[in-house]
């Protein structure tokens, strides 16, 4: 970083500040940056897409390089819930329980056609999309999506995380959203 000899005053321009190693930003942005670069995934893998997630996290595609090194299998310490694979109606309450066990802020990526909409399994036993029971932030289509697509979904979520207001989780809109899913706010 090039340093100029000038001292910082109240009239200093942004460029001058930056030259001294300062960053002027909003609190929201700095929190968003911290959050987005270490999203701990909770892989809720039920079927085929789970195998593609294994590809995503293994050496070739390496999800860890995007800040998701640690797979958090405990919902309490996870930030993003990756729902991969068909969710049958029998599984629905369990998915919901896992979601409610996660601490705020929490995000959900729905990976694969089955999780998004039921996919080819338009049958009596399959939940037609997980957004019937929990709110979803990013949908990744595909049956199953390629690892690149899952990575793109994570990147998309990072964008959302970066730009999310720190007050969003306390906002009445968010509470209304959760209430519409019948999830109690702690």
């Amino acid at each position: 970083m090039a340093r100029t000899g000038s001292t910082i005053t109240a009239d200093s321009s942004v460029q001058e500040l930056a030259d001294h190693g300062f960053v002027l930003t909003k609190f929201d942005q700095i929190v968003g940056m911290a959050r987005k670069n270490s999203l701990w995934p909770l892989p809720f893998a039920t079927s085929c897409c789970g195998i593609e997630f294994m590809s995503t996290m293994s050496a070739h595609y390496d999800l860890a390089q995007f800040g998701s090194e640690r797979n958090s299998f405990s919902p309490r310490q996870a930030d993003m819930l990756l729902v991969m694979g068909t969710i049958a109606k029998k599984m629905g309450p369990i998915l919901r329980q896992v979601y409610t066990q996660m601490a705020e802020p929490r995000w959900v990526i729905s990976v694969g056609a089955c999780a998004c909409s039921g996919g080819i399994f338009d049958t009596y036993s399959v939940l037609q999309g997980i957004d019937k029971i929990i709110p979803v932030d990013v949908y990744v289509p595909g049956c199953p999506p390629r690892p690149e697509q899952i990575l793109a979904g994570v990147a998309k979520l990072k964008e959302i995380v970066q730009n999310e207001s720190v007050r969003r989780r306390d906002s009445p809109e968010y509470k209304t959203l959760l209430r519409s899913y019948g999830i109690d706010i702690v």
């Binding site: 079927s47 068909t86 049958a88 599984m91 049958t123």
Partner: peptide, 11 residues
């Protein structure tokens, strides 16, 4: 079991 029953045989 049955947590991912997708009704293949009906489908």
């Amino acid at each position: 079991v049955g947590y991912i029953h997708r009704a293949f045989e009906k489908l």
